[in-house]
Design a protein around this nucleic acid. Structure first.
Lengths: 281, 281
DNA sequence: CGGATACTTGATGAGAATCAACCCGGGTGG
DNA sequence: CCACCCGGGTTGATTCTCATCAAGTATCCG
């Protein structure tokens, strides 16, 4: 909310009205098939509900670069599945600092947090012109009952979302700044590969400032770390184009945690859940 | 896996065999009702499926302090709902560093990440003697179709999980170390309040080392920050017992982000999704 | 061209990681 | 029972990374 006021104030300062901003988020004429959406979510099996009325057509939305799809504090209950493009999930702290929480690529979900009736804890901003499938909560409930494949797909998406949250934490936690950046690049590379893109040539959709926020460092440090990795020979960096030259060396850099910590931690007990006797009831 | 070897090696060093460790994770004689579980997940409405055979009884597991419920790299597909106690989700990096990813309190979910067929990306360790409901994946699918309330509850849980991941990121990102700790304490206080516990008297279930990992600082720094907050008069700290003395001051401390960032960031566009025209299709 | 934004690089100081010593409580074993 | 060890916690001294401030370049837009 603070952020919103700031932003609109800034617009006023410059006297900009931006009339067509209203078109930044708009439905597309064409709708997508459920099967198509499920494919993008990683579910390739046959969809039993194909042909049922009202189920095979999923509305597609188009959003322009820098448009705000979800607004922090908003309560709208719609689940989005990214079809193309990319988004950043951000949260603006009280003092106006904008914390980047995650990067959402095709197949990823947006709006999950507000589904259970609460408000959105974070905003979603398009990093490029993007499209996404829109599933209103009420429709969602009815579709779920008739299409098990969708349920499967949603669970997949949610699982991945959570796994990625863990990866994010791993990137910003316990390491030197250049190691963080190395992890970020490797992470991006992995995800591009998953999406069928080239894992060596990366196009950063975010500016240095956003990357810095995601990694928990200053944006100058991101610049410096990029330069360092380039000097080492790991990367070739030109603006937002990054090429991975030496994967091994990059992984090496990413590995070195600063606080190595004595391994004999004692906390982890050598027991595994599967050893336990099977469940009763 | 690395972690596992280390742990067992450590046990060998000391010549400890610990025969009854096998009992660290065990089913309870009693089973819980679905309604009871849903209540703990935040769904208080009437459960339509009460009385149906095989639906009203959910197996309850009991785990002892420091036991490992889920193992990183494992593929078991069971969803757990924490009934009492608490867990930490951890991921052991290649070099043996143990990164704490999240703290899971009653009502929270464990095992979501492995539901879509992949392996667990993180382990779950009990911070105290705890109990949880166990829902095997195959049972889950069938129950979901017959009990909409469960679906609702699961979505709630997943939403909260994601929201908490964001909060975690917020805690470790862009601030001075004492501000991080202040945020952590406030966060814990809030969650204790949600659980019906006292928000002023907190009992830390994690050691300094785990807190440090969660916040992304050295464990000595956690100690120092605790001392500092105590000197300020915000807290009273005795080992793992923490009492909040001055809430306002604590919030003040938590607020001050180091990287204030020029607010006129330009990234956030003053547009809201709800302005857009309603969906087609 | 001026203005704005993104990115890079340098100099400097502060804060935190690191190393090290110490206290304390609980468990083990003599 | 006491001495001992071990892990957890606290605190101090030192080093060094990184945030900050500042200046300079490049690119895009009106």
């Amino acid at each position: 909310m603070n952020q919103l006021q700031v932003a609109s104030a800034a617009s006023h300062d410059r006297g900009i009205v931006v009339p067509e901003l209203r078109q930044r988020v708009a439905p597309m004429a064409r709708a997508g098939s459920l099967h198509e959406m499920l494919h993008r979510m990683g579910v390739d099996g046959p969809c039993s509900c194909q042909g049922e009325v009202g189920l095979d057509a999923v509305p597609i939305w188009r959003v322009q670069q820098a448009a705000v799809l979800l607004h922090e504090g908003d309560g709208a209950q719609t689940l989005y599945v990214v079809r193309s493009g990319s988004f950043k999930r951000v949260r603006s702290l009280e003092d106006g600092y904008e914390q980047v929480l995650a990067l959402v690529l095709p197949g990823g979900l947006l709006g999950v947090e507000a589904l259970h009736g609460d408000i959105h804890p974070s905003s979603a901003v398009a990093l490029e012109d993007s499209t996404l499938y829109a599933l209103p909560a009420h429709a969602l409930a009815s579709i779920q009952q008739r299409c098990p494949a969708l349920v499967e797909g949603l669970w997949r998406g949610v699982s991945r979302q959570l796994a990625q949250a863990a990866e994010t934490a791993e990137m910003m936690a316990p390491v030197a700044s250049d190691a963080r950046l190395a992890r970020f690049v490797l992470w991006l590379s992995r995800r591009m590969a998953e999406a069928g893109q080239s894992p060596r040539h990366l196009l950063l959709r975010m500016g240095r400032r956003d990357i810095a926020s995601l990694l928990g460092v200053a944006h100058e440090t991101v610049s410096r770390s990029f330069s360092l990795l380039a000097d080492i020979g790991c990367l070739r960096v030109a603006k937002r184009e990054v090429e991975i030259l030496d994967l091994r060396a990059l992984q090496q850099r990413a590995r070195c945690t600063r606080g190595w910590v004595g391994a004999s931690e004692g906390v982890v007990v050598p027991l595994e859940a599967r050893d336990a006797t099977p469940i009763a009831a």
